[in-house]
Design a protein around this nucleic acid. Sequence first.
DNA 1: TTTTCATTTGGCATTATTGCCAAACAATGA
DNA 2: TCATTGTTTGGCAATAATGCCAAATGAAAA
Lengths: 105, 105
Amino acid sequence: MNTTPPKEVLTAHQFAERAKVMKALAHPSRLMMIDALSRGERCVCDLQELIGHDISTVSKHLSVLKKAGVVTDERRGKQVYYRLKVPCILNFFHCVESVIEANNG
Amino acid sequence: MNTTPPKEVLTAHQFAERAKVMKALAHPSRLMMIDALSRGERCVCDLQELIGHDISTVSKHLSVLKKAGVVTDERRGKQVYYRLKVPCILNFFHCVESVIEANNG
DNA sequence: TTTTCATTTGGCATTATTGCCAAACAATGA
DNA sequence: TCATTGTTTGGCAATAATGCCAAATGAAAA
């Protein structure tokens, strides 16, 4: 009697977990921050200058990314520095670009 | 005088384009459909059985994926068959899984 | 301690997404 | 033609996401 579920069949719960991560990545400002963080850690003030929105908005975007497990933060003195926790995310954008090119081409 | 923009600096517009594609992928039902389509084309009725939602809901999810350029459709007789247009999307889920594992571990 | 600077949180209005039902459309078969 | 099957679209209510302001918190400097 086999009680181990086959690996290749995914549960609804697993798709929901994936969707949460994807959702965290599905906003232009958050993608812009991820791009910046791919070149090294940044404080919130750096990112707010980059994004140009209210600092509270930027902070909330970062908390979305943090809750999804995409970035980590560390306070040093008065500032909080964020960095990419899972850089493999960057690999995906080549593929996304190919989607965009196919759309426009 | 250099008028060619440097490749590595991305515009707000480009991040917005990427976000559109990510947004299309950021829903459990749509991820489930993509997973099914990764094993071959499916008609809307197949996918509705898989998802379990109203057929109109499933159809709208598919139109989101289609508009994002992730899938294509083809009518054959009474049925419309969908298939993955850009399979490289699948590669990303290994990375997403590693995010999820890091979150739970 | 009080002030100042950096960041987060609460609250709220605005907008976007989701999923259902009903109606419309498309293609086939009777 | 009319009926049937499969899919899409319109409309709507419920829910979620976004971004601002104001207030709160944390850490350092005066």
